[in-house]
Lab assay of single mutants.
Amino acid sequence: MIFPGATVRVTNVDDTYYRFEGLVQRVSDGKAAVLFENGNWDKLVTFRLSELEAVK
């Protein structure tokens, strides 16, 4: 189960963010908004829950 605050990895091989890890900001309607941070940039991207896996 994916909840806000969880760290997730993108599993969709066709996505630009494949294998990126980010922090879930919100979850609704089968989608999750994931925040990616890297140095001087932040990006908030929405994914279907089926495209994400929780990082242990």
Rank of each mutant, 00 (worst) to 15 (best):
55 V>H: 04
43 K>W: 10
46 T>S: 09
30 G>K: 04
29 D>N: 13
10 V>I: 07
56 K>L: 13
14 D>V: 08
16 T>K: 15
51 E>C: 05
51 E>D: 15
40 N>P: 13
2 I>Q: 01
51 E>T: 04
24 V>S: 00
38 N>Y: 14
23 L>I: 15
50 S>E: 14
27 V>W: 03
35 L>W: 10
16 T>C: 10
18 Y>G: 04
55 V>M: 06
45 V>W: 04
48 R>K: 14
11 T>G: 04
16 T>W: 11
50 S>P: 05
13 V>W: 06
51 E>S: 08
42 D>K: 15
7 T>D: 02
12 N>W: 04
14 D>C: 12
16 T>H: 12
18 Y>I: 01
47 F>N: 01
26 R>Q: 13
56 K>H: 13
17 Y>C: 07
13 V>D: 05
25 Q>S: 06
12 N>C: 06
33 A>N: 07
28 S>Y: 15
51 E>M: 05
31 K>R: 11
9 R>Y: 06
18 Y>E: 01
50 S>H: 09
15 D>L: 07
54 A>K: 08
46 T>V: 13
2 I>W: 04
17 Y>L: 07
44 L>I: 13
45 V>M: 08
4 P>F: 05
22 G>D: 00
9 R>C: 06
12 N>F: 04
35 L>C: 07
19 R>L: 14
20 F>T: 06
8 V>E: 01
5 G>A: 03
50 S>D: 14
12 N>Q: 06
43 K>S: 10
46 T>L: 11
20 F>R: 13
45 V>D: 02
37 E>H: 14
48 R>L: 14
23 L>S: 08
1 M>R: 11
23 L>M: 09
40 N>H: 11
26 R>H: 15
25 Q>G: 04
4 P>T: 07
26 R>N: 14
1 M>C: 12
51 E>H: 08
11 T>P: 02
49 L>Y: 05
11 T>C: 08
49 L>T: 06
14 D>N: 14
53 E>F: 06
28 S>R: 09
50 S>M: 06
47 F>L: 05
2 I>R: 01
9 R>I: 10
6 A>H: 06
21 E>Y: 09
30 G>T: 05
39 G>W: 08
27 V>Y: 03
29 D>M: 08
30 G>I: 03
52 L>A: 00
22 G>A: 03
37 E>R: 15
27 V>R: 01
37 E>F: 13
7 T>F: 10
8 V>I: 05
4 P>A: 09
25 Q>K: 10
42 D>I: 15
52 L>W: 02
6 A>L: 10
31 K>Q: 10
28 S>G: 10
21 E>P: 04
1 M>S: 13
45 V>A: 06
5 G>R: 02
55 V>W: 05
41 W>S: 12
23 L>E: 08
36 F>H: 01
12 N>L: 08
12 N>V: 07
38 N>F: 15
32 A>V: 10
41 W>N: 11
40 N>C: 11
19 R>A: 12
30 G>V: 04
48 R>S: 12
14 D>H: 14
26 R>G: 10
18 Y>F: 10
37 E>C: 13
39 G>I: 09
46 T>P: 04
43 K>A: 14
21 E>T: 12
54 A>Q: 10
55 V>K: 04
30 G>Y: 05
6 A>V: 14
38 N>T: 12
13 V>N: 06
48 R>Q: 13
44 L>W: 06
45 V>K: 08
36 F>P: 00
42 D>W: 15
16 T>F: 13
26 R>I: 12
26 R>E: 14
49 L>R: 01
21 E>W: 07
52 L>M: 02
51 E>Y: 06
22 G>W: 04
9 R>W: 10
29 D>Q: 08
16 T>L: 13
55 V>G: 03
48 R>I: 08
8 V>G: 00
40 N>V: 11
47 F>D: 01
18 Y>D: 02
48 R>Y: 14
8 V>R: 00
9 R>G: 02
43 K>P: 05
39 G>S: 10
50 S>L: 07
24 V>G: 00
54 A>V: 15
39 G>Y: 08
51 E>I: 04
40 N>Y: 09
27 V>T: 04
38 N>E: 10
25 Q>P: 00
40 N>D: 12
10 V>W: 01
56 K>Q: 13
16 T>V: 14
36 F>L: 10
23 L>D: 03
28 S>P: 01
3 F>Q: 10
25 Q>N: 04
1 M>A: 13
2 I>S: 02
30 G>E: 06
8 V>W: 00
21 E>K: 07
26 R>W: 15
45 V>R: 10
29 D>G: 11
42 D>M: 15
21 E>R: 07
37 E>A: 13
45 V>F: 06
42 D>A: 15
8 V>D: 01
48 R>E: 13
29 D>V: 05
56 K>V: 14
7 T>S: 07
40 N>S: 12
44 L>C: 09
16 T>N: 10
